[in-house]
Nucleic acid binder design. Structure first.
Lengths: 242, 242
DNA sequence: AAACCTAACAATGTCGAGAAAATGAAACTC
DNA sequence: GAGTTTCATTTTCTCGACATTGTTAGGTTT
């Protein structure tokens, strides 16, 4: 049973679950987050059947789960569509995410043990490398950077001890990641991501909860405003792929 | 299209959605929250088919959504069961819920308008009556009290302006309500619920966010400890209904 | 007693048919 | 000509039967 790794919600074995419904869920989830399936795109079962080589029953079950996640919109008797990207929703999403992430980080700093510190250090090390590579080679944000970023933020909160906080956080993280990946990221060079991440890691390892929470909040806010700015050029997309 | 009202998550039209899958979801959800379906109970599609008079396809879709909510556990190729009641999970649940509810309350107090104040006053009025009735007639907690309680807490946070905070809050509220309804509530008389609720309403209307949040936190903590205490008599249930 | 095999059972997935609803086009009315 | 109604087409949703796969328990063998 290979663990292919896609987004981050480490709950499912992803794209290879025990049942076809789980597999469909994982693959569709990844495809939606990475914008392989565009926002607003209609998700007709017949079409998906041939794309993923999976029957209609597991596909429908996967859609219902995705709708519950907020990645897919289920309209009465009009089928399913990929959830649209709405700047207002992202602002809201970011707010909720910040609330949860800050609390989880605070708890992690309170309760984290040596193994947790090691995880944070390791994730921070990877992140620093990816940040450096990103700032050198401007332009496209590679998957490896997204993985490192998810990994670092997950490591930071991984000792919070609350399965539910982590679950909620994971869902919100994935939703936000979709917004991030869909945007152009033109101003990513203007930020010193390496410094931002390093500051968060340092404050965390120093067990300075107040500072770490403040930094995380600013970190998220900066991403949000960068996203809002980059949207001024490209309007919100709401296509209908045939 | 009658809006039958069940728990509180006002998202679905409940038990009467446009599609049978939605209807099944709403009815099962209500039945699980109200402990009509006992924790740990196996949910065999064949059985549910005859109970709810709905085919297997929409039933399975409903189960997947419920599994996503955390009300149902989906095990590999071994079908579905009602999620067990685990004291440790309730503690965790309560923690996450408190975090979100406090933030939503704070935002509501910041942004709430006159209509919101009116909603809080109205919900507080109903709640006071139900609290009084409950303390007089000890024992069973009626549905009308649960409705009033849900209504009050929803009214309090309803002006927070964040759809996602409200959505997350709703899900956690329902999960917590199941724990509450499943427990014996023997010590409910020891608490002056009327006073607790009144204090929260007063602090909220006075726009005293810090006090209101503190009171809400205590309110939830008291419920949690009362629940933990009442469990000492009756052990955790994990039945297997044939 | 432990490991293995086998048979019964349960869950999952596929398929095709049919009902209900939505969409779009044509005809009709004002 | 604008707006509405009617009708046909398409799509979604649902059902039931069946095939497949996985799980479990009991019995056999070593």
């Amino acid at each position: 049973m290979k663990t292919e790794r896609y987004a981050e919600t480490g709950e499912q074995d992803v794209a290879d679950g025990a049942t076809l419904a789980d597999a469909a869920y994982g693959r569709l989830r990844r495809d939606i987050i990475t914008s392989v399936r565009a926002p607003g795109e209609r998700l007709r079962i017949e079409k998906l059947k041939s794309i993923y080589q999976i029957g209609p029953t597991p596909l429908r079950e996967a859609m219902q789960k995705l709708a519950q996640d907020g990645l897919v919109v289920s309209e009465g008797n009009r089928g399913f569509t990929v959830a649209p990207l709405d700047p207002a929703e992202f602002k809201d999403l970011n707010l909720a995410r910040t609330v949860i992430e800050k609390e989880a980080l605070r708890l992690s700093i309170e309760q984290g043990d040596d193994a947790w510190e090691a995880r944070v250090v390791a994730a921070g090390y990877i992140m620093a490398k990816e940040d450096a590579a990103l700032m050198k080679a401007q332009g496209h944000v590679p998957d490896s950077w997204e993985r490192a970023n998810s990994g670092l933020h997950l490591a930071l909160v991984s000792a919070c001890g609350s399965a539910w906080l982590l679950k909620l956080r994971g869902g919100l993280h994935d939703l936000c990641e979709r917004y991030r990946r869909a945007s152009v990221y033109q101003k990513i060079g203007a930020r010193d991501l390496t410094a931002e991440h390093a500051a968060i890691v340092d404050a965390t390892l120093a067990r300075n909860a107040d500072l770490a929470c403040r930094l995380i909040e600013e970190h998220f806010a900066l991403t949000a405003s960068a996203l809002a700015a980059s949207r001024e050029n490209a309007g919100t997309v709401e296509r209908d792929k045939k």
